[in-house]
Nucleic acid binder design. Structure first.
Lengths: 127, 127
DNA sequence: CCGGATCCCTAGGGATACTG
DNA sequence: CAGTATCCCTAGGGATCCGG
């Protein structure tokens, strides 16, 4: 069986003490995973990321990159050129978390048709 | 190498077409994962879940359970007794998604000290 | 016991305009 | 180019009270 995530059938709840919430809360936001995946193939610059991650605003790209940097997933490098050039790349830990995330994405890809079907079915029952 | 999640270096963005966002958005909320994990060992009743998942409100437990049911992860069974008794259990698909989620949780458990360290370091640099 | 219905408040996040 | 700073609006979610 899989490892326990609870204490005596009592679930963690405090963000500080619960690794699940503590880690997933950050990655679970709107853009973090997409940015991590966008960096898997190697370093990239701000505006390149912005155009590749369709729909993200400048504000959220900056902010999420800062958060990912703070968590230790992303390394930010400023090249003192004119105009400024900034590159972002995954750290070892960033590459580390991407692996289990891919497991999830793979599962999601394989099952999201079934999930959409389940949603439709549920919604029909309600109405 | 891992499977691509992008199209020609262009990331998915639309929730309808992007399995990542489409699936993760749902379980990425505040309580879904905790509820799924709470049901791994078998079916459980509403109030039992409520006391085991410390900190969850009645409102959010109900709502999240409904969402999980709609996604197809959880089956809800009402026993026509007095007082009413309702049991929730994982479906096959619910058990399915728990596996990759555990990969993530395991990773999180192993790395969240390192992450907390990274946060402290980052915050010190800023101030 | 298991919720549904309300009220309310905050954090997340979009749009836009401005800088080194 | 790579941000910062504002404004603003909505969705998430807590607290509380009511009902089958």
């Amino acid at each position: 069986m899989v490892a326990k995530v609870k204490t005596e059938r009592r679930m963690f709840h405090n963000n500080e003490e619960c690794p699940i919430r503590n880690v997933i809360t950050q990655i679970g936001d709107k853009w973090s995973m997409l940015i991590l995946f966008a960096l898997v193939d190697g370093a990239d610059r701000f505006n390149s990321l912005k155009s590749r991650i369709v729909g993200i605003s400048q504000r959220m790209l900056t902010q999420t990159l800062r958060d990912l940097e703070r968590e230790g997933y992303v390394k930010r490098t400023v090249f003192p050129e004119v105009p400024a050039r900034v590159e972002y790349e995954l750290t070892t830990m960033g590459l580390g978390i991407v692996k289990p995330l891919y497991q999830l994405v793979t599962w999601a890809s394989e099952n999201h048709e079934e999930i959409k079907r389940s949603r439709r079915e549920y919604d029909e029952k309600i109405m």
